[in-house]
């Protein structure tokens, strides 16, 4: 698999590690309740088809990426910087 890092370009997947579904971006408030935290930490839609995951370019620019991908074909559809999604800045 190859992933096009928005900062570094087209790279072999071995430069990256993956954390899991993009759910991890939506951290509940501390008082959101047990169900919200269960959803955040454990429960997954686990789609057979398009999904979005968080990958880390650890052997590259250290950016966290959201990778839209198909779990049936392994096609990579779109790659975004997590910082762009969360409103982070680009000073470095």
């Amino acid at each position: 698999m190859r992933i096009t890092c928005p900062l570094c370009g087209d790279r072999d997947s071995r430069e990256f590690s993956i954390r899991g579904h993009e759910t991890y971006l939506d951290r509940p408030a501390p008082d959101a309740g047990e169900a919200a935290w269960d959803n955040y930490l454990h429960l997954r839609d686990n789609p057979a088809g398009e999904t979005a995951e968080l990958w880390y370019h650890g052997a590259g620019c250290a950016a966290w990426l959201r990778v839209r991908r198909n779990t049936l074909t392994h096609e990579v559809l779109k790659v975004d910087l997590v910082r762009d999604l969360t409103g982070g800045d680009h000073a470095d």
């Binding site: 698999m1 899991g20 579904h21 686990n46 057979a48 779990t71 049936l72």
Partner: peptide, 12 residues
Amino acid sequence: FYASYAARGNLP
């Protein structure tokens, strides 16, 4: 390490 239903592995 990545979610998949493709039943085939990667080279790395």
